[in-house]
């Protein structure tokens, strides 16, 4: 009960719950459509989804300021790659929220002659760019950790007792098993690093799920309503998880 009170006191937490409900409705709508359910039920689910979407737009009205504040904080990071990725990502998020606010004003009738399609596309473009930068940051962090882990293993592991058994590089057929071993080692390293860093794993999963939404909406990589709904729901659940357990949130 106490954790629920703490959780629901944050506006972002409630926004995430509404987002999860919205994508659950998207997924449910797709399932009902495939299953040939009654048109009235499908209409109710669609109406509920639209209501959730509009409410989320309302809840995000002040978020541009927060994104700009986050960008201002990210400028002071010592790592140049992180600084670039996070600052530009936050600026894109601020632009995405600004477009979202314009869309909200259009949907509520404050701006009557608004090309909603154009503004929606613009909004998703900024969202996509923000996600690409977040994924770049995740990959960069992952590479750093993998290098660190590889160095640690190299210092721990004893040198090979059979130096003569190393295969010559000039033979392409002989190089294949070496490549396979190296690839397997890299893969093992990748899995080890990810599982020993749950915040990075969750952030990577979350951004990977999220990226399909703008890709589908912009028509770059159409996947369909069901897949978008599933990805959105998975991403929202992961996001809620990082809020319930703050240690799972990737910092900075």
């Amino acid at each position: 009960m106490d954790s629920w009170l703490r959780f629901s006191a944050q506006s972002q937490a409630k926004e995430r719950l509404v987002r999860a409900a919205q994508y659950a409705c998207t997924l449910l709508g797709y399932t009902l459509q495939k299953g040939g359910a009654a048109a009235e039920l499908r209409r109710t689910v669609s109406q509920l989804e639209a209501h959730m979407s509009l409410t989320r737009k309302l809840l995000r009205l002040g978020n541009s300021v927060e994104a700009l504040e986050a960008a201002k904080r990210a400028i002071h990071l010592s790592d140049s790659v992180l600084r670039l990725c996070l600052t530009v990502s936050h600026l894109n998020r601020a632009m995405y929220f600004a477009c979202d606010n314009v869309l909200w004003a259009g949907k509520t009738g404050l701006i009557s002659k608004l090309d909603q399609q154009k503004w929606s596309q613009r909004s998703f473009r900024y969202y996509l760019f923000a996600l690409i930068l977040n994924l770049t940051r995740d990959v960069y962090e992952l590479r750093l950790l993998m290098e660190c882990e590889a160095r640690y293993r190299a210092t721990k592991a004893p040198p090979s007792p059979y130096p003569s058994t190393t295969l010559p590089n000039n033979s392409p057929t002989a190089a294949l098993p070496v490549m396979s071993v190296r690839l397997r080692k890299q893969l093992h390293l990748f899995v080890t690093v990810l599982f020993s860093n749950p915040p990075l794993l969750l952030d990577l999963l979350k951004n990977s799920c999220d990226i399909f939404i703008p890709l589908d909406r912009l028509g770059i990589y159409p996947t369909g309503t069901g897949f978008v709904g599933a990805c959105g729901l998975a991403s929202s659940v992961l996001s809620i998880l990082t809020m319930v357990h703050p240690w799972l949130k990737l910092k900075p």
């Binding site: 009170l5 629901s8 409630k14 209501h51 409410t55 309302l58 509520t108 009738g109 404050l110 009557s112």
Partner: peptide, 23 residues
Amino acid sequence: KLQDVEANMNAGRKLFRLGNTIN
């Protein structure tokens, strides 16, 4: 326009208050 905004705010607040019974 003002009535539309008012209705939107009201609907948003109703959704936002869904967990308040527990509180």
